[in-house]
Design a protein around this nucleic acid. Structure first.
Length: 491
RNA sequence: CGGGGCGUAGCACAGUCCGGUAGUGUACCUGGUUUGGGACCAGGGGGUCGCAGGUUCGAAUCCUGCCGCCCCGACCA
């Protein structure tokens, strides 16, 4: 990137957009509000998918797939669910086109109107619970632990690459349980899986918490979330896990016979993360040179660039390079040896920095002479010469250090931009001037939350799980508060 | 849907006020010299100036209408 990370939110948006495009992650599609994910961007997403999928399976979940289309009638069975999603749904009304004899081209065939419209899923609770009705009869069928990798469509008014697109890729878990307690435990478990993934793989420190009633998922009893801080100080909701109570079971009549032979409604959860995580990854770690990818998610962890004048030189360098590539791959490290003669070394250096490759090895004639290689790390941009016989070990430790360092840097930033406000004056000052996360007392009412949002644009991101339960008075209304909550401007 | 900005070569833009038949950088192609931080020189290809209509001898430029994109707001993962 030619310019430094901008501080004004408007400039930050442009900077972000430019980075996403330059790094070859994604681009705007001609289709309204949609994006094209390019191979390099998709490679990162695949890494995320593989990692999460493994974590889901380790916690006992299985994958399945449900329809893209949801009959309108399904959708309206859970009252608050419709209300929450009605405004942003794409609707299929016809099933055929025909030649337009008047204007040329094709037109929607008016004779092909569907009797019942189909909604393109904005989320799959309704179709899935409709199936669960048939899948669940007895307590022996529970718990039912299903996940689906899918695309969903939400007709958002304004879109932004990865963070909010009309169509996005995600994973949605939908589980059914015999008891309230078990469902609640599942909700928290999956929240912890997300937090672990964010922190250990994305190198993204997150705050776990519960959403307020205003921000709660439509149809949920309780919504848990993880909130991350971006480099402009704004908050980004990185994942949600919902305790659905018996709401969907009642709406879709999903009952089971318990051990005593009595019929009961099942208890549900749902949880999801999306390609939005890609946005989080980009915004949390990138610098003026481009992406900074944590080694645990980087499609290419190590790139080897030869520096040479003549073909004989390249041959000798390649021998060394191929040897390292082989040895590193044997240690499960993904390596790319870029010996293209169509680009010069300096060009390649800049290119791989833009793409966020964590480690670069450069090998030139000087290295052949001295038995060394030059190793550069992306996060700090430090370079050093390392003896060839120590290179593999060095890189293994280095990748680990980089992973930790990126996390630490983000954690330090989050810490430094988290503040406490004891009065509304102080609160407004912090939100306006410093941004970041602001902890403050709140009286627990939606009215106060709304007022603060109107006046400052800051919303309650969550009621943090690990918050100290100190009593106090609401900064806005002066009424009693049970503990501080997390406010921030959000994406 | 409101408020601002913008549509000219693959990309980034100048030219528009003041009309004269399209330009710069970059990318691309060819040849040569280069290669330890996005090389240099020479030559070359590529644009119905967003679309439609109007004014004019003549329109990227002026007028009218439409379409699209971006940023901010409302909505949201």
């Amino acid at each position: 990137m030619s310019k430094a990370i901008p501080s004004r939110s408007e400039d930050y948006s442009l900077w972000y957009n430019e980075l996403v495009k330059k790094a070859g992650l994604a681009e705007n599609s001609p289709v309204r509000g949609c994006m094209v994910i390019k191979p390099y961007g998709f490679a990162i997403w695949e890494k995320m998918q593989q990692t999460l999928d493994k974590m889901f399976k380790e916690t006992g979940h299985s994958n399945a797939y449900f329809p893209l289309f949801i009959p309108k009638s399904f959708f309206s069975k859970e009252a608050s669910h419709v209300e929450g999603f009605a405004k942003e749904c794409a609707v299929v009304t016809h099933y055929r086109l025909k030649n337009d004899e008047v204007n040329g081209g094709v037109m929607v065939d008016p004779d092909a109107k569907l009797e019942e419209e189909l909604i393109v899923r904005p989320t799959s609770e309704t179709v899935i619970w409709d199936s669960y009705k048939n899948w669940i009869q007895s307590y022996r069928d529970l718990p039912l632990l299903i996940n689906q990798w899918a695309n969903v469509v939400r007709w958002e008014m304004r879109t932004r690459l990865f963070l909010r697109t009309a169509e996005f890729l995600w994973q949605e878990g939908h589980t059914a349980h015999a008891t309230r307690q078990e469902a609640e435990e599942e909700t928290v478990q999956m929240l912890n899986v997300y937090a672990e993934f964010a922190e250990n793989f994305m190198a993204l420190p997150v705050t776990k918490g519960i959403k307020t009633e205003n921000e709660r998922f439509a149809g949920a009893v309780e919504t848990y979330c993880i909130e991350a801080m971006m480099q402009d100080g704004k908050a980004l909701q990185a994942g949600t896990s919902h305790f659905l109570g018996q709401n969907f079971a009642k709406a879709f009549d999903v009952k089971f016979a318990n051990k005593e032979g009595k019929e009961e409604y099942v208890w549900g959860t749902s949880w999801g993360v999306s390609t939005r995580l890609m946005g989080a990854l980009i915004m949390a770690h990138s610098d003026d040179e481009g992406l900074v990818l944590p080694p645990n998610l980087a499609p290419i962890q190590v790139v080897i660039v030869p520096i040479y004048r003549k073909d004989e030189e390249l041959e000798k360098i390649s021998e060394v390079a191929e040897k390292f590539a082989k040895e590193l791959r044997a240690k499960n490290i993904s390596v790319q040896y870029d010996k293209r003669d169509t680009h010069k070394p300096g060009w390649k250096f800049a290119e791989y920095e833009l793409k966020g490759v964590p480690v670069r090895i450069a090998i030139g004639p000087k290295d052949l002479e001295k038995g060394t290689v030059e190793i550069a790390r992306r996060d700090t941009k430090e370079k050093q010469f390392v003896a060839q016989d120590q290179t593999v070990d060095h890189i293994i430790t280095l990748l680990d250090q980089i992973q930790k360092n990126i996390y630490q840097k983000a954690a330090t930033f989050k810490e430094a931009n988290t503040h406490q406000a004891d009065s509304y004056e102080e609160f407004k000052e912090l939100i306006e001037k410093k941004g970041g996360f602001v902890y403050a007392h709140w009286d627990g009412t939606s009215e106060t939350e709304e007022k603060i949002k109107e006046e400052t644009k800051a919303t309650i991101r969550c009621i943090p799980l690990n918050s100290n339960q100190e009593e106090g008075t609401c900064i806005y209304s002066g009424k009693p508060s049970k503990g501080k909550v997390l406010f921030a401007k959000a994406y």
